[in-house]
Amino acid sequence: MSENLECLELGQVDEVAVVKFRDKKVMDPSRIEQMGKELLELIADDENERLLINFDNVSFFSSAAINKLIVLEKQIRAKGGKLRLCNLRPEVRDLFSYTSLDQMFEIDQEQVESIQALSQ
């Protein structure tokens, strides 16, 4: 599956689908559209209802990209799935706290914490 994704890399740890962004800077409008589309396609598959987005290597994330995550979170929640984020650089984490989205998203420091939480 991952080889068909332009903007995302998909892996699996235990029962959790782990997604990473291919772009270090998630800001290009057409790439953001594609990224949003790929995320929604991923969760259409019931095997990916426990989803972790690992921000490893992401140095920039625009509000347009954040909006794609909001849409994703709503859809996962509606399906009864679970979403967590991990490995955010401090400046990227600030985007979520400045906009109070750290109340909406479950954010962990390390992938291992997220996997543990999503496996429960």
Binding site: S63, I66, N67, I70, V71, E73, K74, D94, L95, Y98, T99, S100, L101, Q103, M104
Partner: peptide, 19 residues
């Protein structure tokens, strides 16, 4: 950042500029 607006996809850009 208001609770009722958290899951809306608008208004965040202006807030980030100010921040």
């Amino acid at each position: 950042t208001a609770e009722q607006n958290l899951d809306k996809t608008s208004g965040r850009g202006v807030m980030l500029i100010k921040a």
